[in-house]
């Protein structure tokens, strides 16, 4: 019988994932593929926003979509109607995607011939924020009916995102949603956050968001 030893590790359990994510980002750079990680709660209009975004950009970039869900392929079927390549990733009960699962999805999707891949993460404001997927940029959608206090309740996701899309502004008159308050709360947590108020339904504000994304993708895939 070997002697029992104590091994001091002292490292975050996210360390391995962070390393894998960094490696994936380097691979994406090599392949000249931009990966956007899109997060939100369920029902925020993520799929509708995505479809609008695809319509705006599909003639300029070769786009692919990965839909992460615990089960079902409802969203992937909707996305397929836009004509872009999409696959459904089933997390098998898990509440988030990590870098390893994201890379598996990218391999299946075939990132070599794509300029922009959008990962629709599992609908939830807590767990997806903890795991770096390897994406180049992170965006989240918050919708008007969810309330303007979300940055106070779920601060982490607001700190890890580059972009906050505020969706469903067409229903602002019917809700006690203070657009200035939400901006103030979100910027308090993340002063570099870009904020785009939109209505995926009417199309209002969409071009400001897609202009930003177009520039980001262009910079990434054309970089030396």
């Amino acid at each position: 019988m070997d002697k029992i030893r104590i091994i001091e590790v002292k490292e975050s359990i996210f360390e391995d994932n962070n390393r894998e994510a960094a490696r994936l980002r380097a691979r994406l750079k090599n392949e000249r593929t931009f990966l956007l990680n899109l997060m939100s709660s369920p029902g925020s209009g993520k799929t509708t926003t995505l479809m609008r975004t695809i319509e705006e950009l599909k003639h300029e970039f070769r786009i692919g979509v990965m839909e992460a869900d615990i089960d079902s392929s409802v969203d992937a079927e909707k996305i397929a109607t836009t004509g872009v390549k999409s696959i459904q990733l089933h997390t098998g009960g898990m509440c988030h995607l990590d870098a390893g699962m994201t890379e598996q999805g990218l391999n299946e999707l075939g990132m070599e011939n794509l300029d922009l891949v959008i990962l629709e993460n599992v609908g939830n404001l807590v767990c997806p924020a903890e795991f770096d997927t390897g994406a180049v940029k992170n965006a989240m959608i918050l919708s008007v009916p969810e309330g303007h206090d979300k940055p106070l309740k779920y601060p982490l996701i607001f700190t890890v995102c580059d972009v906050l899309i505020i969706n469903k502004i067409d229903v602002l008159p019917y809700f006690d949603f203070d657009l200035e308050k939400v901006k103030e709360y979100a910027l308090m947590r993340n002063p570099n956050l870009k904020i785009f108020p939109i209505s995926a339904k009417t199309g209002e504000g969409i071009s400001a968001w897609t202009d930003w994304l177009r520039n980001q993708v262009g910079d990434w895939i054309n970089a030396d």
Binding site: M1, D2, K3, I4, R5, I6, I7, E8, V9, K10, E11, S12, I13, F14, L156
Partner: peptide
């Protein structure tokens, strides 16, 4: 307060 760290492992 947000840490999830692997501190140590007892093994042979």
């Amino acid at each position: 307060g947000r840490e999830i760290n692997l501190k140590e492992i007892k093994a042979c």
